[in-house]
Amino acid sequence: MQVQQIAIFLENRSGRLADISALLARENINIRAMSLADTADFGILRLVVDDTEKAKTALKDNGFTTGITDIIAVQVADQPGGLDSILQVVKKARLDVEYMYAFTQKSGELGILLFRFDDLEAAIKALRLGGVKILPGEEVHGL
């Protein structure tokens, strides 16, 4: 199973992000990784959490619009050239990256890159072929 990401629609209103963090805190949900995409008028908060279903239900019950998407987690060495080694594979395979974000697991040891590809299956195939290590969803959610 791939990593499941929750995307949340956000109006550009002050305090809106804090409403979500308060809700997740109250529900005892742990955030693994996050990224915030913004335009002049609205934003999309993307989260990877330990309990996706619980988070989705809590958000929905509180009136947020959410969507769940499969994304790919890739393991990389936390050192210069780490990101590049992956992106060269992506480039060679002509994969379209919709967006990506990254976090490190124990600084200096392990980096994790989260990719949203247009074509998930093709991406998995190409990355495997290029010798890239794809992390199973369970591992990322349960880190």
Partner: peptide, 15 residues
């Protein structure tokens, strides 16, 4: 209003 049906995790879709 943005419903679940029209919502997307991609900015470009909402735009």
């Amino acid at each position: 209003e943005v419903s679940e049906t029209v919502f997307s995790d991609k900015i470009k879709n909402l735009e």
